[in-house]
Computed example of a mutant assay.
Amino acid sequence: MKTDKQQRTSDHSIEPLLGAHLITPRCGYCHHGIYVGEGRVVHYAGFGDGHRCGPVEEIPLARFAAGHEVWVKVEAWPKYNGTDAVRRARSRLGENCYRLWSNNCEHFCTWCLHDENRSEQVETWLTEPLAALHTALRLLLVETAARLSLSRTAYVF
């Protein structure tokens, strides 16, 4: 869901500004990261690679996008921007304390830019229970489909 405060950056020939807050849609939620230059993003991996929580890591923009569009969230008066936001993002590389409700990828980006621990997605899920239920069901369906796909391929000889 792209809002008027987000700019489409699917054209990978246009490089985002250093410290830009990037968003890419996933099934039922949006993933967030900080652009650190040279086609790289620092993000909280979270559950991105499956069942185990991943750390804060620096990855190529294409891997962050994972085949989805990427948007730049226009931040109103960030406390840190540019190289300061990049420095803050990189200062947490390797941190492995992901928590969906209190320390996710959006919390990470908000901290990098505003020195606040905040996630609009979590706030929406908490204030709109149907939105949370919808997201949970979509994630469950995706997970179930992935497990079924893996179990079928595991027995192919």
Rank of each mutant, 00 (worst) to 15 (best):
A65T: 08
P78V: 05
K73I: 01
E57F: 04
E75F: 00
D49Y: 10
E69Y: 12
W71P: 01
I59S: 03
K73G: 01
G48E: 09
V72E: 08
R63D: 15
H68P: 01
A62I: 13
F47E: 06
T83Y: 02
E69G: 08
L61M: 14
D49Q: 11
A62P: 01
E69S: 12
E57P: 03
W71I: 03
E58L: 07
F64N: 03
P60S: 11
P60E: 14
A76I: 05
V56Q: 01
A66K: 11
W77K: 13
A65V: 04
E75V: 11
K79A: 11
E69W: 06
V74I: 15
G48F: 05
N81K: 07
L61A: 06
C53G: 12
E69A: 15
G50E: 07
A65I: 08
V70T: 08
P60T: 14
G67Y: 11
H51G: 05
I59M: 13
L61N: 02
N81H: 11
V74K: 08
E75K: 02
P55I: 02
A62E: 15
L61E: 01
E58C: 11
D49K: 12
K79D: 12
P55F: 00
G54M: 06
I59W: 01
E57D: 09
G48R: 09
F64W: 01
I59R: 04
L61I: 12
V56H: 02
V70H: 03
E58W: 00
I59T: 12
A76P: 02
I59E: 10
R63P: 00
G48A: 11
H68T: 07
E57I: 15
G54N: 07
P78F: 04
A62G: 08
E57Y: 09
K73M: 13
F47I: 05
Y80S: 06
E69M: 10
G48L: 05
G82Q: 04
L61K: 02
W77S: 15
